[in-house]
Design a protein around this nucleic acid. Structure first.
Lengths: 196, 196
DNA sequence: GTCTATATTTGGATAGAC
DNA sequence: GTCTATCCAAATATAGAC
């Protein structure tokens, strides 16, 4: 009795999702270069060969992750833009960014590691660029928020804000257990979310 | 006519320095994992085999770099501590950090990439840890400076300062040609180097 | 849809001659 | 002190059977 089309589809989807989860886990643990397909497959509970039935190769796994990361970033930014006042918009960015790192610091660290990849890396630099471009695009949006807020030199202010925010994320991912998340959110809010 | 001891020493030193420079160049360009000994040797103008006469292997090259980086960081911090007032001490830290990144953004990026290495990387994590520890040590020193400055919650203030500073370094290394270095130094100074 | 066995490549490291 | 030739391990990817 052969499987129906729907059964096969379900199996395929579920296996693919297993691989995704396993790949993220292993990549975060070992880093892209040191992660082996072997180990990803083992962690997903399948054979090495079967991987290639679902992803073209190791790079394809990474591409999939980066795509989903960029979606996640854009989503937070769009939610922020939908807020009523620039004050609330910026607050949403701060909360979105810092909560995300606070919840999954290793994952943030993985993507930052990726973003700081040398530009001439043969394989990975493409994805580094994609992430940086996504951030740059959202930075433009953020500039508009500081305009609305009525900042003197909105672009400079926005850049200073981004520096502070990304610095906080970096330090939080480096010392996740000691970083006073809520305290920092309060400080950044106080400094940037109103016209002083 | 054989070479004298001194001639040999000079040759050895000069060759070693050549390798160091070449290795930094290639590592910064390709990243540690993608850099090949082959290419480092080519760039240094020597054969691959000769490399192993000067360094135990690829990892030893990295160890050498990290050691010299930590020395560099500590030096800036000691110079800062030698200043007369906490205001000047903090200013020295800001200038030292941001000028360094401004001059060699790729190199900073390389070390940040190293620091964000996953903890369980088999080879490289050791050096990641060393860098993070050097930074943590200097952070203690910095805390003292904010104490002297008479900050309300000195440790929190110091952490916020570090977040801002490292965020600025990160963004500067990401967009080296667009980042308004001097402007940012001024802002950070204004915010942190006095008691407001 | 899944597995095992195998091919292929890359690159770090060593040996031995000059 | 330097080079060329060689070894060897790791890991990506493929082929073919069940």
């Amino acid at each position: 009795m052969p499987r129906t089309r729907e059964q096969n589809d379900r199996i395929r989807q579920s296996t693919k999702e297993n691989i995704r989860t396993a790949a993220m886990e292993i990549f975060v643990k070992r880093g892209y270069h040191n992660a082996s397909i072997e180990e990803v497959a083992r962690s997903a509970g399948i054979s090495k060969g079967l991987m290639y039935n679902y992803f073209k190769g190791k790079e394809d796994l990474l591409a999939d992750m980066v795509r989903s990361r960029i979606e996640e970033i854009n989503k937070v930014m769009q939610e922020a833009a939908a807020q009523n006042s620039p004050t609330e918009q910026l607050k949403h960015i701060i909360d979105g960014a810092l909560d995300n790192v606070g919840q999954r610091p290793k994952e943030y660290r993985f993507y930052l590691h990726l973003q700081t990849q040398p530009e001439e890396d043969e394989i990975v630099s493409k994805y580094s660029r994609m992430l940086n471009e996504a951030m740059a695009k959202n930075y433009q949006l953020q500039n508009g928020m500081f305009m609305s807020l009525g900042a003197d030199d909105a672009n400079l202010r926005s850049l200073y804000f981004s520096s502070t925010l990304h610095g906080a994320m970096l330090l939080m991912s480096t010392y996740p257990e000691h970083y006073p998340l809520e305290e920092m959110k309060k400080q950044i809010n106080k400094q940037f979310c109103s016209m002083g």
